[in-house]
């Protein structure tokens, strides 16, 4: 077994163990009762990690986009295929988008049961609270969906990779004001405006919550990396197979001439 594959197995095992701990202990632990939230405060263990996983994967996507642009520098000696970085950037962004959608969906459920329980279901406002972070997350999602749309509009692989990489850098830059600045400026359902990034402050969140939240967060991040690795391997293999078939068809054609 190579060193890489043992690292892979170790982090996958760690992800499973941390998530099992988060699911079982997150549901069964006795937690301090919070006003308004009651037991729904447990949603924090699954909702908050979605955003940290998303940011990690978008960060990975940014890293590969910058790497691609460096590898495509014409003055540089080519040591590896830059399009591999394009596959990695795209797949990391794809998994990041899934986490973004899950974060929005879990947020909608949480706000529905905690702050809009008395409103009728057919009212739009009972599901969508127009909270600043919620709106910013939706804007972030749309920006990344545009990234995929942009990619789909180019046929030539190296041109697509270069333009998508540049767009990706700007897309990640927009996440900083959307997730870290705007929510601190406006009041909403999230306590961020009054307390800042409260989940890392000892005086804002009790140890009972921190004991479950942090490991679960790490578990979901590792699960995201696992999903990214699977997708990257799949796309890479599919491309290799396609190239191989094209080459075979070409050699077959030239031999019959």
């Amino acid at each position: 077994m190579t060193r890489m594959s043992s690292i892979r197995i170790a982090y996958q095992l760690l992800a499973v163990l941390l998530l099992l701990y988060g699911i079982i202990y997150g549901m069964m632990a006795t937690l301090p009762e919070l006003p308004a939230l009651q037991q729904s405060a447990r949603i924090m263990f699954y909702h908050v990690p979605m955003w940290f996983s998303m940011l990690t994967l978008m960060g990975m996507s940014l890293y590969h986009s910058i790497r691609l642009l460096l590898l495509m520098d014409p003055d540089r000696v080519q040591t590896e295929n830059p399009l591999l970085s394009d596959i990695r950037a795209t797949e990391a962004a794809r998994i990041g988008v899934i986490f973004n959608i899950l974060g929005l969906a879990t947020g909608i459920i949480w706000s529905r049961v905690s702050w809009a329980a008395d409103r009728p279901s057919h009212e739009f406002s009972s599901w969508w609270a127009w909270d600043p972070i919620q709106v910013c997350a939706l804007v972030g999602l749309l920006i990344y969906l545009a990234y995929f749309q942009l990619r789909a509009s180019f046929k030539e692989p190296s041109q697509r990779a270069r333009i998508a990489a540049v767009y990706n850098i700007f897309a990640f830059a927009t996440l900083i004001p959307l997730f870290f600045i705007v929510p601190k400026m406006f009041e909403g359902l999230h306590p961020t405006a009054a307390k800042g990034s409260f989940i890392f402050k000892k005086d804002q969140i009790s140890n009972e919550f921190r004991l479950i939240l942090y490991p679960t967060m790490l578990g979901f991040i590792l699960m995201g990396v696992w999903a990214y690795e699977l997708r990257t391997r799949l796309v890479h293999l599919a491309l290799r197979l396609e190239e191989w078939r094209a080459l075979r068809a070409y050699t077959h054609q030239s031999s019959t001439r």
């Binding site: 037991q39 729904s40 529905r112």
Partner: peptide, 16 residues
């Protein structure tokens, strides 16, 4: 509100 927590968990883990 425990059902809401379960719904969230099923949604996330089911999809992922």
């Amino acid at each position: 509100k425990v059902y809401a927590v379960m719904a969230v968990m099923i949604l996330i883990l089911g999809l992922l």
